[in-house]
Design a binder for these strands. Structure first.
Length: 203
DNA sequence: CCCTGATTCGC
DNA sequence: GCGAATCAGG
């Protein structure tokens, strides 16, 4: 694939929206995230303000000694790095954080009844439907949960919700999922129960 | 381990 | 110009 005007446009748009390089690569298809990053740099639209790995912007006051500080360590095979002047100074104004809107933090009590209508959430464990052992096991696992929020979930993090969605006291398990399943081992255990074991458990 | 972006350098 | 390999960091 090549960087047609159209593809570059998509790249710019998505990058501007704060999408990650891998997401962009996935969207475009035919390119890797490396290709995307490489292109981003060549286009000069690098430094995104909200980058987590943002390096501490060099706040050089009076950089006396122009000690070339290789941002990346020259790998063994690297040729002799020419001690060239690093002109990186670009007195630009702060870029208005293009990040996706920060989730408005509503007061918990003002949305007591509101339940986000996203993916169908799995049923909360109902004490009268799961075995005491499984329940105990799950409670134990939940103590070690990663407590991820919705945005932090990936295809391989356990999506079992814990807590009350109507309050701040809510998060997702986040532990490693059982391959192919949406939950970790413990939660798969309570989520997918054979009918046989469910039957007659009802009061 | 999963992910992120940054950089280098042969092509 | 391109992007795999590699690096640094969360």
């Amino acid at each position: 694939m090549s960087w047609t005007d159209e593809r570059v446009e998509i790249l710019k748009k998505m990058w501007g929206e704060g999408q990650s390089a891998s997401q962009i690569a996935k969207e475009l298809g035919g390119v890797t995230r490396n290709a995307v990053i490489g292109k981003v740099h060549r286009l000069g639209l690098s430094n995104r303000t909200a980058s987590p790995a943002a390096k501490p912007a060099a706040k050089e006051k009076a950089a006396a000694a122009p000690k070339a500080k290789p941002a990346a360590k020259p790998k063994p095979k690297a040729k002799a790095a020419a001690p060239e002047a690093e002109v990186e100074a670009k007195p630009e104004k702060e870029i208005p954080a293009t990040q996706s809107a920060a989730p408005p933090r509503m007061a918990a009590h003002l949305r007591k009844q509101i339940v986000p209508a996203g993916q169908p959430l799995p049923p909360q464990p109902s004490a009268n439907e799961i075995s005491p052992e499984a329940l105990a096991s799950v409670r134990e696992v939940e103590k070690g949960a990663k407590r991820l929020n919705l945005m932090e979930l990936t295809e391989r993090t356990c999506k079992w919700p814990i807590g009350d969605p109507a309050t701040e006291d809510f998060w997702f398990c986040g532990l490693a999922v059982q391959t192919g399943k949406p939950y970790c081992e413990a939660h798969v255990g309570v989520a997918f129960q054979p009918m046989s074991s469910r039957r007659d458990r009802r009061r």
